[in-house]
């Protein structure tokens, strides 16, 4: 447990409001190293329940790295070391007692490139519930699959071909299938790593609409290169630069009255 006293008592250079009233994830003084190289420098931020927060910043600024720290996907990289504390519901996720399997069941992830399993649409969605034992019967599993596909707005398009390969769908459909796969295990938080960067504008619009819908039930952290996208879908925005969290705040405020010079330069298109 992270003691309450020092949660909001943290030294940070970040401008803006890093705290939130109803924090789901609390990150304090997070440093990330790839071998000798420091990718993330002293980042502290709260992520609230049922909020959509976007991470923006130029390429290589560490926003994806930071995102992957939140569900410990960086564990798969041997040289990656994480310092500081990240807690989910006040429990340190890097604690030895925490099993990454349960953590990732709570924090789903959607990747940059749609990556459905080379299996049927049904199998793609059913895989998570199956390995976590979330359903005790075929009917329950069918129900989960149907609901997840409905929630991801894919049901009407695929209900007649659930047994056909997931990789046969279009790029946008594949990405929505990946979202359905993520929400099938009933997570609390969904991390999205540039989910629309490989998609055309129409597919992107669909996914954005979907993210807005999902924001009512889940906390969503989205990394994006598109500032318009960040402005359209997120309530809060965090600007990263060279591994540092420069500014955090209400999306409106960040895009209209950024306090920091670098943030202003980036959103007005002068760097990045």
């Amino acid at each position: 447990m992270v003691s309450n006293s020092n949660i909001n008592n943290v030294k940070t250079k970040t401008i803006g409001e890093i705290f939130s009233k109803d924090p789901k994830i609390i990150c304090r003084n997070v440093d990330v190293f790839y071998g000798e190289k420091q990718a993330i420098k002293d980042v502290s931020i709260d992520i609230a329940s049922r909020e959509i927060i976007s991470f923006i910043g130029p390429s290589g600024c560490g926003k994806s790295t930071f995102l992957r720290c939140l569900n410990r996907m960086n564990d798969t990289i041997d040289t990656c070391k994480v310092k500081g504390s990240i807690s989910l519901d006040k429990e340190d996720i890097y604690d030895e007692k925490i099993d990454v399997v349960t953590l990732r069941a709570k924090i789903g992830m959607v990747f940059q490139k749609p990556n459905p399993f080379p299996k049927s649409i049904y199998e793609n969605v059913a895989y998570g519930p199956k390995i976590h034992g979330l359903s005790s019967s075929k009917e329950e599993l069918d129900f989960i699959v149907e609901n997840s596909l409905k929630d991801s707005g894919l049901w009407e398009e695929v209900k007649d071909r659930l047994q056909s390969p997931g990789t046969g769908l279009s790029g946008g459909q594949q990405q929505r299938l990946c979202i359905a796969r993520a929400i099938a295990v009933s997570p609390e938080i969904i991390l999205m790593d540039e989910p629309c960067s490989a998609l055309d504008p129409i597919a992107t619009a669909k996914i954005e609409e979907l993210i807005n819908q999902l924001g009512k039930n889940y906390s969503i952290v989205i990394v994006t290169h598109s500032m318009q996208q960040a402005a359209r879908i997120s309530q809060r925005t965090a600007y990263f630069h060279l591994g540092e969290l420069i500014e955090v705040g209400e999306t409106k405020k960040i895009f209209t009255m950024p306090e920091d010079k670098q943030t202003e330069a980036y959103i007005s298109g002068r760097i990045g």
Binding site: T102, R104, A105, M109, F111, F117, Y127, A182, A184, V185
Partner: peptide, 15 residues
């Protein structure tokens, strides 16, 4: 084997 497939599996909590 594409790393994206492994990521996908790890991402939904497969051991």
């Amino acid at each position: 084997v594409p790393p994206s497939i492994k990521d996908a599996a790890y991402g939904i909590g497969a051991s």
